[in-house]
């Protein structure tokens, strides 16, 4: 913002009257967003930062406690550690699986076969189901006694676990639930696949490359911007996972808090126990963490993401 303030006056005096009228109209047109940015974004973010140094249950006046909230979170709060572990574990397993399955399904959908559109629709459908409904469906599918999955495991002679009531199986269950919606990212990978020029594959065929070589040498590099984009979105999304945890594990996080996702914990502290200061501190820790991770992913991107346009520019 300071850069803007420095540049604005000088630029403004250099404008002709008609340019000034256009600029005024421009500010007027974007004013809804500016208002929203100030009222629903910048204001709340600053407020949240200030609140994180207070103790406040929304009635009465906030009480300044300095770094007390942060100190307690990092040194005395076992639930914070649990929530971080659960969320990181989930991210570590779910994100790679989402990328792998997303790409594989996109490859399967990229075949030139009759009726492929019907299959695409079927794979995409679970992604359309509202999260509350799909979570409920999975709670029922995973029912240890009457559920579909353990029935089918029974056919194979396997005694299925009790899924959402077993602390060891809560997280795998939620990962499975999320993977059911992988059609959403598969369709994005499919669009990426279809943007790869066919000549590349033809040239590779002429040089005698086999399918695997083509996939590793052409498909993956050409798809890397899409993978990158999906990974960044996926990371941010993972730390915001709320509904499946709330419905499947329960609002307190399930057996031994094995499904206590970070967002669920923020919700519990802020809105169930009404501790606005503590909740704000939790949210700020998450924000800083997400920004660091996103920055790292962006920094790493130059080593593995291939941009066609950049290549052209340097030529």
């Amino acid at each position: 913002m300071s850069a803007l303030a420095r540049r604005l006056p000088r630029a403004w005096t250099q404008l002709s009257p008609s340019e000034r009228r256009e600029a005024l109209a421009g500010y007027l047109f974007i004013s809804p967003w500016i208002i929203g940015f100030l009222v629903f974004f910048l204001g709340p973010i600053l407020a949240s930062f200030a609140l994180s140094f207070t103790r406040w249950n929304i009635v009465g006046t906030p009480q300044w406690v300095g770094l007390d909230n942060y100190e307690r979170i990092f040194t005395q709060d076992p639930f914070f550690r649990k929530a971080v572990t659960v969320t990181l574990k989930y991210a570590a397993f779910y994100l790679p699986l989402e990328v792998i399955f997303g790409i594989l399904i996109a490859v399967v959908l990229n075949q030139k076969l009759r009726g492929i559109g019907v299959f695409r629709t079927m794979y995409y459908m679970p992604y359309i189901v509202p999260k509350v409904a799909s979570s409920l469906v999975w709670v029922w599918v995973l029912n240890p006694r009457y559920g579909l999955l353990n029935t089918m495991l029974g056919w194979l002679g396997v005694n299925g676990p009790s899924w959402l009531s077993d602390p060891d199986w809560v997280l795998p269950s939620i990962i499975m639930m999320s993977l059911w919606g992988v059609g959403g990212s598969a369709v994005i990978y499919l669009a990426g696949l279809q943007n790869i020029p066919n000549q590349l594959y033809e040239a590779a065929s002429v040089d005698g490359a086999n399918r695997l070589q083509k996939f590793v040498r052409i498909t993956l590099p050409m798809l890397s911007p899409t993978i990158f984009f999906q990974l960044v979105l996926g990371l941010i999304g993972t730390f915001q996972t709320f509904t499946p945890a709330f419905i499947a594990a329960g609002r307190s996080g399930g057996p031994l808090q094995s499904g206590l996702f970070y967002m669920l914990y923020i919700y519990n502290r802020s809105f169930e126990s009404m501790r606005m200061g503590y909740g704000s501190a939790l949210a700020w820790i998450l924000t800083v963490f997400i920004m660091i991770i996103t920055l790292l992913v962006f920094r790493s991107s130059k080593y593995w993401v291939y941009y066609e346009a950049e290549r052209k520019r340097t030529k």
């Binding site: 629903f40 709340p44 973010i45 923020i266 704000s280 998450l286 924000t287 920004m291």
Partner: peptide, 12 residues
């Protein structure tokens, strides 16, 4: 890029 959680409590 900023998660909406930060604004959730103050908005509320």
């Amino acid at each position: 890029m900023i998660p909406y959680q930060v604004t959730l409590v103050p908005r509320f």
